[in-house]
Design a binder for these strands. Structure first.
Length: 395
DNA sequence: TCCCATT
């Protein structure tokens, strides 16, 4: 008997997953958490921050410290509306802002490129905590987002990012942090690696909590040899991406392919995601079975409704009469490549007839979207989301 | 040799 993947969606529809729309994604994330970008500082709550300069000006007040979150490593094409949609699934949002490139100059002003991070301020501190617990580490397209409390905004924490080069190729991220931690509190660290071989490129970043800490680190470590190293390292302030022009960002975008060649870890993560879906649905470990060797393509021969040749067609039911295409983009876009959305409307009234379709390019992204969005509460309606079936009978 | 963490 052939495994019918369309049944995954209906199986996932029942049970506890439906009650918590996003837990599907989280469950799929479990094995990925250690693979993402530097997420070892996700517990940087306000309690560890010295709040000496008591100036709750700008946009951050003391009360905000338990409701205001910073979200890092967002996909480049994610909009503020999508950010709000995703985090709004946790609880009521007081404000939400995607930080964008503000440089305009000669270039077209309508291009305001996302800088890949944003802020979400909840009404209820409990929702902020819940968002950290459930959305931190969520994989969106090629990114693994980081969700943590925002530090109170202040000039002293800006421009605290260092660029370090000449590192021994054998130096680990942990060793890098150990070297710099004597100068202050490290917010993030990263060593760049060759995309193909995974070998260190000998360059990295250290972001301190405060700029003065970064300045001290430059004084103490620039042109110095780390313990055991034969060559001195260079430590300087990193280029500030917000000062890059839109033009530069554009050319950078143009040069880097939209979908990077997945390294071993990414491939493994993808396999785990597929594995989790199959495991939850059937209690099988697909990665130990031949059909999971390369995920989707090795599933050939299995009857998979929803596959439309150009992508995977998803059926979305229980949309409101005034629903439009944009809501479908907003809901499904964060999960991966969406090539088409359509709201089915009444010919005479132009009102939505209660359902629509979404086409996604990649199977596993579609599967995670379905597992996550099925049962999603949109307004006063609970959506039903599944792969489109070939059946034509009326519901 | 430059990663996208402060509105």
């Amino acid at each position: 008997m052939a495994v019918r993947l369309c049944d995954v969606a209906s199986l996932l529809r029942s049970g506890s997953w439906a009650a918590e729309p996003w837990t599907g994604v989280i469950a799929a994330m479990e094995t990925q958490l250690s693979n993402g970008p530097t997420c070892n500082n996700t517990s940087n709550g306000p309690s560890t921050i010295s709040n000496n300069c008591s100036s709750p000006v700008e946009s951050g007040s003391i009360e905000d410290s338990k409701t205001n979150l910073i979200v890092n490593y967002l996909p480049q094409n994610m909009t503020q509306e999508e950010l709000k949609s995703l985090f709004g699934s946790i609880g009521e949002i007081e404000s939400c802002k995607l930080v964008r490139d503000k440089i305009t100059g000669n270039v077209k002003t309508w291009i305001r490129q996302s800088l890949g991070y944003g802020f979400v301020n909840y009404v209820d501190p409990k929702d902020a905590e819940k968002a950290i617990n459930t959305l931190n580490g969520l994989r969106l397209q090629t990114k693994t987002i980081k969700v943590s409390y925002a530090r109170p905004s202040s000039a002293s924490i800006r421009d605290a990012n260092l660029y370090v080069s000449g590192l021994p190729k054998t130096m680990t991220q942990k060793e890098l942090e150990q070297l710099f931690s004597q100068y202050g509190r490290i917010i993030t660290s990263r060593i760049l690696v060759d995309q193909v071989t995974g070998v260190s490129r000998g360059v990295g970043f250290i972001r301190f909590d405060r700029r003065i800490e970064a300045e001290e680190a430059i004084k103490g470590l620039n042109c110095q040899k780390p313990p055991g190293a034969t060559e001195p390292i260079t430590v300087k302030f990193a280029n500030n991406p917000s000062q890059k022009t839109s033009q530069a960002l554009l050319s950078q975008l143009y040069q880097s392919p939209n979908r990077r060649y997945p390294g071993p870890l990414a491939q493994q993560a993808q396999r785990f995601r597929l594995d989790n879906l199959l495991n939850m649905a059937y209690g099988v470990k697909s990665r130990f079975s031949p059909m999971a060797i390369d995920g989707v393509t090795s599933l050939a021969g299995i009857n998979i409704p929803g596959h439309a040749g150009t992508g995977w067609c998803i059926f979305v039911y229980n949309l409101a009469p005034d629903a439009d295409e944009s809501i479908l983009w907003q809901m499904f876009g964060p999960f991966g490549a969406v090539t088409n959305v359509k709201v089915i409307r009444d010919f005479n009234t132009s009102k939505c007839k209660g359902f629509g379709f979404v086409t996604m390019t990649n199977y596993d992204e579609a599967a995670v979207a379905i597992a996550s969005l099925n049962g999603y509460r949109l307004g006063d309606r609970v959506l039903q989301v599944s792969f489109k079936t070939n059946k034509t009978h009326k519901a």
